[in-house]
Write a protein that binds this DNA or RNA. Structure first.
Lengths: 225, 225
DNA sequence: GCGACTTTGTTCCTGCGTTCACAAGCGGCT
DNA sequence: AGCCGCTTGTGAACGCAGGAACAAAGTCGC
């Protein structure tokens, strides 16, 4: 049995596949049965050629002259992304951001289910957020083992993020999404992705300033030597 | 009047500069006066050579044989990123995520200040979050004009994100950070950055599944030696 | 049944980002 | 003062992502 496709899909492609999946869901709900690459690309905000290249990583799944069948493509992408079954997620750090994520309905409909909320602060333990009760950190290992949660989300302060990461990894979590503004070191076999909100803002600030400098050279901000 | 540096800095570099800036702040608070590229790179989680190349976009700002002066480098990066002065941000959509962001203290210390919170829902208007009062959408233009806010953050449902984007752009906002899971079209001169939380989770799910397939070859996946 | 049109899948190419490796420069020591 | 070691800054090579153009393939109309 030869491998039908190169088993390595570029990460950038994977991220776009997730976007296509969302668009396909919307199209399916709207009753559409087929889409062309051009239309799908427009809805996803990408180049049609790039979209076809992304989809080519899944093997041929369109019909020439017609387009892609919405339901089929949806299933195919779901399977490749590994979201055809719901995945358990545990969330550590129930501050504002953690609470917002726990209460965000958008995850459940996309194959993710929070199976445990944790916090170290005793006064947060016992609160109910998004239909779940916040549990103490001591319960983490047990919950992860019982629910087979494969994803951990860290929304703690930066100082404790690394220790939480270690703890999640030890409990058996294989994938970690880190919102704390520190680079995390995880043991091999554990993937870590980082989302840094203030970095996003700072990049925006830079782009804005750059544009300002180019558009309005009123003040010749000559860097004084 | 020669421009001392190429005024185009790669976006990836800008994002890392923001990380370096944070590390430098921590180092300065810790009393350190100089750092080597190796140490800084380790703290930021990047390659030392890459870090030096990033910094080279700012012109020479280190001392060979010694390293970088923490305070000087901090100021330099701050100026380049445009965060040496505080920037006003308006936030539209005070759901869970919006409230979390408004209440997040990490932004204020990094040169960003929320100057207006807005929501279309009447029952949210008047609420106080993070020291600010939620205002109706009608007040947006006036607040943006009065505060010279340059950044807008969209945390609304996907359906209204585009109209909010248009409205922000019309009000004079030049940079937009979009948390809604839709690609936004903005007029030229307005930068849009997107943060898609469920995409991050789905990429993680893919990586986890990929690793699972490699570790547990139940299906005969041809994994050549 | 046949031609033409539409749309996919692929291939090439260009540009960017990242990494490695080396030369230049500076401080400290003798 | 001269040498040595350390660190920066830069140049080159590699790999990857993105975009455009082209060939294959299937459908619709006649």
């Amino acid at each position: 049995m030869i491998q039908p496709r190169p088993r390595t899909i570029p990460e950038a492609t994977v991220a776009r596949l997730a976007v296509y999946l969302r668009v396909l869901t919307a199209l399916g709900d709207g009753g559409r049965s087929t889409v062309s690459s051009g239309e799908l690309a427009a809805a996803a905000g990408v180049n049609p050629a790039g979209l076809r290249k992304d989809l080519s990583h899944l093997g041929p799944c369109g019909v020439r002259g017609v387009g892609y069948e919405v339901a089929t493509l949806h299933d195919r992408i779901s399977r490749v992304l590994g979201v055809e079954r719901s995945r358990g997620c545990v969330l550590v750090g129930m501050g504002n951001l953690g609470s917002a994520l726990a209460d965000y309905a958008g995850f459940g409909t996309r194959g993710f289910e929070f199976v445990g909320l944790f916090d170290a602060a005793p006064d947060r333990v016992g609160q109910s957020i998004g239909g779940h009760t916040v549990q103490p950190m001591d319960a983490l290992d047990e919950v992860v083992a019982a629910t087979q949660a494969s994803i951990g989300v860290i929304t703690t302060p930066a100082e404790v993020a690394q220790s939480v990461c270690d703890r999640l990894a030890r409990a058996g979590v294989r994938s970690i999404l880190n919102f704390a503004p520190v680079p995390l070191a995880a043991p091999p076999g554990v993937d870590v992705r980082k989302v840094d909100l203030s970095v996003e803002l700072q990049v925006l600030a830079f782009l804005g300033q750059q544009r300002l400098g180019a558009a309005a050279p009123l003040a010749p901000v000559e860097e004084p030597a």
